[in-house]
C-alpha cells in the first residue's frame, strides 16, 4: 500500500450490499475508472477476479515451507540416529526410515503452517500494532467501500462521483491521507 503514503485524495463509494458492490466493480471499470481497492466485512467470491488482482502465490510459498520442514526432519533424524550417535532400539537398524515418518510429517505441517501464515502477514503488511488504513470504519461491520485514487484517474472528481452513484453507491465520501 505504498501508494497511499503520500497525500493521496480518494473518493470512497459506500455500498450496502455485497452483490451490488460486485456488480458495481464491473460497471465502474467499464466506465473507465481505475479502482484502487474494495474493502468488505467478509470475503466476496469473485471480487478479486473482478478487480483484476493477480492470483495469489501463497500456495508456492506454502509448498516451499513444507519442503523445508520435510528436509529439516529428514536431516535431523538421519544426522542424530545414523551419524552422531547410532543406536539400535527394538532390533531395528540405527537408521530406519519408517519410524521417522511421524516426525517428518509433523515438521512438514509445522513449517508449512508457520511459514505460510508469516508470508501472509508480511505480504499484506499486517503485524502487531500496525495502524490500519481504513477508508471507512463501517467496512468491518456492514458496509462495502470502493476506493478510487483521484491522482490515478484522468476523469474529473464530479464525473467519478456520478459513476459511483449510478453504480449503486449509497454515499460517496472524500478521504484524504
Amino acid at each position: 500500500m505504498a501508494d497511499v503514503n503520500g497525500n493521496g485524495k480518494f473518493l470512497v463509494g459506500i455500498y450496502d450490499d455485497d452483490d451490488v458492490v460486485l456488480k458495481a466493480v464491473k460497471d465502474v471499470k467499464q466506465a473507465g475508472v481505475r479502482i484502487h481497492e474494495v474493502y468488505t466485512p467478509f470475503p466476496i467470491h469473485g471480487l478479486d477476479v473482478a478487480l483484476g488482482h493477480p492470483r495469489t502465490r501463497l500456495g508456492i510459498a506454502a509448498f516451499l515451507f513444507a519442503l523445508s520442514g520435510t528436509t529439516t526432519a529428514l536431516l535431523l533424524t538421519a544426522y542424530t540416529e545414523a551419524f552422531d550417535w547410532p543406536m539400535i532400539v527394538g532390533g531395528k537398524d540405527s537408521y530406519s526410515f519408517p519410524v521417522y515418518i511421524p516426525v517428518i510429517f509433523e515438521l512438514t505441517v509445522l513449517f508449512c503452517a508457520l511459514g505460510m501464515v508469516g508470508t501472509f502477514l508480511v505480504s499484506n503488511g499486517l503485524g502487531p500494532a500496525v495502524k490500519p488504513l481504513m477508508f471507512d470504519l463501517r467496512t468491518t461491520d456492514n458496509k462495502f467501500a470502493m476506493a478510487i485514487d483521484l491522482s490515478k484517474n484522468k476523469l474529473a472528481e464530479g464525473d467519478i462521483e456520478q459513476i459511483l452513484r449510478s453504480s449503486g453507491a449509497a454515499e460517496v465520501n472524500v478521504k484524504q491521507f
Binding site: P43, H53, L58, A113, F120, N124, K131, L133, T139, T140
Partner: peptide, 22 residues
C-alpha cells in the same frame, strides 16, 4: 491484536486461500 486488518479484497482473497491450505 487485529494487526492492521482493513478487509481489502486482495487481503480477503489471500486469506481465503490461506484458510483453505491451513
Amino acid at each position: 491484536l487485529s494487526m492492521g486488518w482493513n478487509g481489502s479484497a486482495k487481503t480477503w482473497a489471500r486469506y481465503e486461500y490461506m484458510s483453505l491450505i491451513l
